[in-house]
Structures are given as structure tokens and as C-alpha cells.
Design a protein around this nucleic acid. Structure first.
Lengths: 209, 209
DNA sequence: GTCTATACTTCGATAGAC
DNA sequence: GTCTATCGAAGTATAGAC
């Protein structure tokens, strides 16, 4: 039984915690309920007693992970009193810190988008609506109208920004290995990213078409 | 048996083609050799006759996929007679076209980097060495020395560029679904990307620190 | 609630006939 | 080379005792 399991209040929560970690790390196919049971210090029968099946257990984890992911994003989008540039910088930093706290989350969400895209779709559609009506989108539009920045499709903007923030975490295992063989450090890279990504986006927005 | 299988010259190649598609789409754990056999129009015994085991079959596919992926990248890096900006634009277009031709490749490579990072590591290390000694790297450095562009770490440059090119393909299933419900088109988006990504990178490089 | 024991299913691999 | 038949391992789920 792992340390995390011992700390949980009750058995159901204990199982859920282990399952969340394993599913997030290894995906649905890569996770065996035997492993979950073992690491949680219980037996398989108990998993099915609480969650009825592997699939239902997984579903509850998916929902949790999506909420965690989207929650982080939504916060900064409408925070009052920020200039466009400040908002982009805050958004970037917030996103990186969230993923830092749960590095497998990014890959899990992506994976889910491929295997179970119906489910993922609903969450993403929801998020996109939030983005489209956000203060961020409003500022992008109004600043473009005044000619302060180059006009950009909100969709494209979101895609490019996300790509730059999410990818490093997707490649994390490769980073970990490179950290041993070369003079690179993932955390330093992330701190650089917080600077470079907003710099790059602002440079683009302020450049002439 | 699928159409692709019927067209193959011999049985071994037939099996390999189906396996490549399924492994690339579904990953190692998600692919069942039963499915491969069925779609190839043969039985399981024959798979093992040719490839000895699922794992060996998979390995041969991995190698093929990596070569396809890296081959596309390497081409443009040293092509003579290109300015830095031209090279970046060519590189972008080349990458997008390669992934367009095999849309699951990007995700496969990423997935591989997580599950089998030792193997992936060797390929990536190789690629990084090629990049570091490329005409692209040389131009980035010399132009920065002259003050024509802002100095940038080759590593960071590569990461940001790749992130923007690869991510759309990783999210492709979500795109496909959105294409039905909204007024978006993946191929149009890719064409826009060919313009926007180099624009953004050049804007950054030409901006003041 | 929790366990043991076991049933049921899927999967990868192989023996042996042709 | 290709097939049928089958084995053994691994995985999920459940019955039933406590």
C-alpha cells in the first residue's frame, strides 16, 4: 500500500485517489484494476463494490480531471482590471503552474480527446463558449478595432497559446531523461516559458500584417 | 479484409500495413493482434510466423514511424540558399504537409515518448544533434550576433515551433467533431497556420528584448 | 464493508496438420 | 506459408462467507 492510500479518510476515497493517479499516468488501457486494488491496499471485489466496474470508476476520474483542467483556465479569463498583455501573462503563468502541480493532466486530456471524443467534446465546447465571451476575447477585438494590435481569430489565438503551454508537459518523460544526460532543467525551462510565450504573442499582435 | 490489405503485394507486407495503421491510431495497448489479423485477412498464427510476437511487430512499426517523422524535419534544415525567414516558412509548411499525409503520426510519436522513452530518447537525441548543427541553428546565431534578430536558445526555438505545428494534429478528433457542429474547417486552419506561425516567430525574433 | 474463491472473458502464443 | 485447434496467462467481474 502506498503512502497516499494510507492517508485517505475512507476506503472509497482511498481507491479513488490511487485510481486517479494510475489512470492519469497510464490511461484507460494501460491501467489494470489489479494494480489499483493492490496499491490501495484492498482487493478487486471491493473496487466493484464501490464503483461497479472499471469503466464507471474511470468515468468519475475523467470528470474530476476535466474540471481541474478547465477550472484553472477559466479563472483568469475574466479577472477585472487587467490590460490585455497583463491578462495574457497571468493566463500563461496560471496554466503552467496548474500543469506543474499535476504534470500528467495535459496528456490525459489530450488522450481523452482521441479515445472518447464525444465526452471531451462537451467539455471543450463549454470551455470555448466561456473563452468566446470572456474579457480576453473582448479585449482582443476592441484593441484590434482601435488599431493597437493586429486582428486575430480568437480560435487561432487560443490554439497557438495552448499549444505552447501544453506541449512541454506532454514531452515531460523525454525531458526527465534529457535532464540526466544534458545540461537542461525542466523547471527553469518553464520559468523561461512564462516570459517567452507572452513575449512572442505580444510581438505578433503588435507587428504589422 | 480491408481494401488496403488486398492491394499489398505479399502477406508480410499486408500485415505490416494493417499493423502500422492500427498501432499508429490506437497505440500498443489499444491494439489487439486479433484485430490486426482479421483486418489483414489472415489468422493470428501467421502474425507470429512472420513477426514472432506482438512486441516485435510493434517495434518494426515504431522504427518506420520515427524515420518518417524525422525524415520530414531534416530535409529543410540544411537546404542551401534560404534566408532564415524563408527557411522557417519552408520548415513550417513541410512539417504540416507531412503530418497532413499521416495525421496520427504526431500523436503516436508523443505517446511513444511517454511509454517507451528510452527508445524515443535515442531518436530525439539524434534529431536534436542534427538540429543543433543545422544551417537553421547557424543562421539563428549569426543573425543574432549582427543584431538583426533577438538572441534565442535553439532548444526553446525548436520547442515553440514544434508545439504550434504538432498540437493541431493531436487534437484532430476534436476538430473532426467540431467541423460538424460549427463553421470551422481543419484544412483551412492548417493553411492559416502556415502563415501565422512563421509570422509570429519572425515578429518575436525581430522585436526588442 | 471486506474478504476468499472462483467464474468468465480476452488476449497472446504455439503445436501440429496440410 | 497458411490454417485449425488449443493452451496458458492476465484481466474483469461476481457469488457467498464473515
Amino acid at each position: 500500500m502506498t503512502e497516499e492510500a494510507q492517508q485517505a479518510e475512507n476506503t472509497e476515497e482511498k481507491i479513488r485517489q490511487v485510481a486517479k493517479r494510475l489512470f492519469t499516468e497510464r490511461g484507460y488501457n494501460g491501467t489494470k484494476i489489479r494494480d489499483v486494488a493492490e496499491e490501495a491496499g484492498v482487493n478487486i471485489a471491493l473496487l466493484n463494490y464501490y464503483f461497479r466496474s472499471k469503466e464507471r470508476l474511470y468515468e468519475s476520474i475523467v470528470i474530476e480531471n476535466f474540471q481541474e483542467y478547465i477550472g484553472a483556465l477559466s479563472k483568469v479569463l475574466n479577472e477585472p482590471g487587467l490590460s490585455l498583455e497583463e491578462r495574457i501573462r497571468r493566463y500563461t503563468a496560471q496554466m503552467i503552474d496548474t500543469l506543474k502541480a499535476n504534470p500528467d493532466l495535459a496528456f490525459f486530456i489530450m488522450n481523452e480527446g482521441r479515445n472518447n471524443s464525444g465526452f471531451c467534446q462537451r467539455f471543450m465546447a463549454n470551455h470555448d463558449a466561456v473563452v468566446a465571451e470572456s474579457k480576453m476575447a473582448e479585449q482582443l477585438q476592441s484593441e484590434a478595432k482601435v488599431g493597437a494590435i493586429r486582428p486575430i481569430d480568437m480560435f487561432m489565438f487560443d490554439a497557438l497559446l495552448h499549444a505552447q503551454l501544453v506541449m512541454p508537459f506532454v514531452q515531460l518523460p523525454i525531458w526527465r531523461q534529457m535532464e540526466r544526460t544534458r545540461d537542461v532543467n525542466f523547471n527553469e525551462f518553464l520559468e523561461q516559458l512564462k516570459q517567452t510565450v507572452p513575449d512572442m504573442i505580444m510581438a505578433y499582435l503588435r507587428s504589422k500584417p
